[in-house]
């Protein structure tokens, strides 16, 4: 049994009323950044919320840090080693950045004022917010608020960090800064990050899990995902017919993604996105179970 598997997901299911949000998800994750990739409605948030112990587990087996989140005592132990950034982090808008992170720090059982304040300063500095700590949250830009959210997720140096779409809605410069941060964090921790942007995965992740309709449809390295599309991406002058995707690039040619490139086609190296699209496309073509 591998000691580096911080997260073990095994045939996990979850329903809300009649909706089956998770329908058999399975993978393991360890040290480094694992990306959860998938379209909206794939069940990523549901899964992450279960991992953050915010949602009660459903069917299947979920093991976090060797513990079982369905058991109350284990839940407490997990929460002590967990950092979580929800998709829509809520803030007390009248609080300053410092005050908010301090508040969460109290919830993380840091009762000694002096050391707690030192820790708050540390995570704010990590998130690049040292100068803004005294500003009210409602006066901060969206990107800065996201960083406040990230800062609180780093309190107490957690072993498991769960980030739900941390880069959504950020402009390229902010996103780049976030990636840098996440990459540093992932160096000696387990980071689970969901996104629906393949560039994030390519830039950051050592492992990628693709989810769709509540199921895992891929679990491997970003390179393996990319290579799914090897030999299936080519350029042509005119728009190709009968292919998965064909669009006009900025250079005037057409880039095509499909199962069977025509003979003599100009094959090009696939990108991560190609692999991802191909994968989802195949899923869409599968006969209904």
């Amino acid at each position: 049994m591998s000691t580096t598997s911080t997260v073990v997901v095994d045939e996990v299911t979850r329903s809300f009323g009649r909706t089956r949000a998770l329908d058999g998800v399975g993978f393991t994750a360890g040290q480094g950044v694992t990306g959860l990739l998938g379209p909206n409605g794939a069940g990523k948030t549901t899964l992450l919320r279960m991992m953050a112990t915010v949602l009660a587990p459903g069917g299947g087996r979920l093991t976090l840090l060797g513990l079982d989140p369905a058991r109350a005592e284990d839940r407490l132990a997990i929460r002590r080693r967990l950092g979580y950034l929800p998709q829509e982090p809520g803030f007390y808008r009248h609080f300053t950045a410092f005050e908010f992170v301090d508040y969460i720090a109290i919830l993380k059982e840091m009762t000694d004022r002096r050391s707690r304040h030192d820790e708050v300063r540390r995570v704010l500095a990590l998130a690049g917010l040292a100068e803004e700590s005294g500003r009210k949250i409602r006066a901060l830009s969206g990107g800065m608020r996201r960083r406040v959210g990230l800062a609180q997720a780093l309190l107490g140096d957690p072993d498991l960090v769960i980030l739900d779409e941390p880069t959504a809605g950020l402009d390229p410069e902010q996103r780049w800064r976030f990636r840098e941060l996440i990459s540093t964090i992932g160096e000696d921790r387990t980071v689970l990050m969901s996104t629906h942007q393949t560039e994030d995965v390519g830039a950051l992740c050592t492992q990628v899990v693709v989810m769709d309709n509540g199921r895992t449809c891929f679990d491997g390295t970003p390179r393996e995902l990319r290579e799914l599309a090897t030999g299936r991406v080519w350029l042509s002058e005119a728009r190709a017919a009968g292919v998965r995707l064909s669009w006009r690039t900025g250079e005037g040619e057409h880039r095509n993604l499909g199962d069977a490139p025509p003979k003599g086609a100009r094959l090009i190296d696939p990108t991560l996105e190609d692999g991802y699209l191909l994968l989802l496309g195949e899923r869409a073509l599968e006969p209904a179970a």
Partner: peptide
């Protein structure tokens, strides 16, 4: 009501106590 509700649950501090 509480914008930081989820964060509160995910934290070790017992929500019932809060």
């Amino acid at each position: 009501i509480d914008p930081a509700h989820e964060l509160g649950i995910a934290a070790p501090y017992r929500t019932s106590r809060l």
